[in-house]
Design a protein around this nucleic acid. Sequence first.
DNA 1: TTCAGTAGGTTACTACCGGTAAGTTATGTG
DNA 2: CACATAACTTACCGGTAGTAACCTACTGAA
Lengths: 207, 207
Amino acid sequence: MEAEQADTHPVATASRKRLPRAERERQILEVAEEVFATRGYQTTSMDDIAQRVGLSKPMLYEYFGSKDGLLLACLERARRELLESTTAAAANAVGPEQLLHDGLLAFFRFSDEHRQAWALLRNESTVPSLPVNSELESIRSQQVEFTADMLRLSLPNMNEERLEAFAEAIIGACERLAMWRERRPEITPEVATEHLMALVSPSLTTA
Amino acid sequence: MEAEQADTHPVATASRKRLPRAERERQILEVAEEVFATRGYQTTSMDDIAQRVGLSKPMLYEYFGSKDGLLLACLERARRELLESTTAAAANAVGPEQLLHDGLLAFFRFSDEHRQAWALLRNESTVPSLPVNSELESIRSQQVEFTADMLRLSLPNMNEERLEAFAEAIIGACERLAMWRERRPEITPEVATEHLMALVSPSLTTA
DNA sequence: TTCAGTAGGTTACTACCGGTAAGTTATGTG
DNA sequence: CACATAACTTACCGGTAGTAACCTACTGAA
């Protein structure tokens, strides 16, 4: 009804044209990730996003099915990026100790450089949607499994249950430390990694 | 429109009377905690809760102000209970090592015995409500500060930043392990505590 | 050149839920 | 027995997820 909000310009200038589906989808995803991450999922309406893209709501439903579906698409992209970052780091590590170190560092760097993606992942069960929750759960499993694999290299003799516990605990510690870093900007990814290594590595080298 | 849901009986039988405010509030809180914990905050409507209590929606607003206010009241109760549990455990511990052990054990026991309360606390920023989020944040700070105090006893010489990092990391580990336990019912609070102690205690005793 | 098929896009609705205004009834007390 | 008031209800509003039905610009063949 009333005029457009002051700061929600219809993304860029040239978007007042029909665009091929693939390109629109990328555009929508970009806007959605930003706005979900900064204003929150619940607070954001589909009309908000549509308006920011310079489009009408039904197109979002045409391409992503539902609001959950749109978030899901954002999460899937974030998962890919996170996996790439951590596996790349693991690829050129030397020993088992170094492997864990580099994996942790890659995680903290990810939460640093992809703040929006991290903000989406950090939210637990914001959404009452089964697909979204199982996606979040599966992202976590991915990380836990990744960590467990590293631990298996360091501690080939440890029983499986304890190994699982260690992996879960380390992932939990990572998440909290990443959130801690949001309040303490002077803590670099390197420093955070060092703190966490100081906490866990003694129990890995001795056993 | 359609009939009432099969299983949403108007709580107990005798509630078809005017009750004094204090008693109704307790009743509402009980129902709200259960239904928020099991079906989730977003999924639950105020009419749902009202119907389960055997009451009409405006009474909930009369007593709790808003949906967030109702959740907030649940959280405040959960915080009290958690604080009681952990401080009680800390009271009769002997050394610094034992102190940490008993604190962790109390936490896992809490998440075991007060499942609904824990389910509420576990949810990160489910709600776009500032009061709710700051309550959750303050509950966490409480736990972190509690842990930091314990660590200070074990490690009086450690620099403050690392100590904070350790406390955050341990709380994160606790949370993840508590969630892990939900999928692994055979893991008792004692066993979980032992795993976590195995991970962190080497770095505490040596330094 | 034209014109049908379709991908891209919109308007205008419904259903549901958080929240509220205004009114109604039970109940304890002078 | 008033009657004040605490306990409670009905009936509404605004906003948002989701949908139906319709429109329109572009493409490629006849």
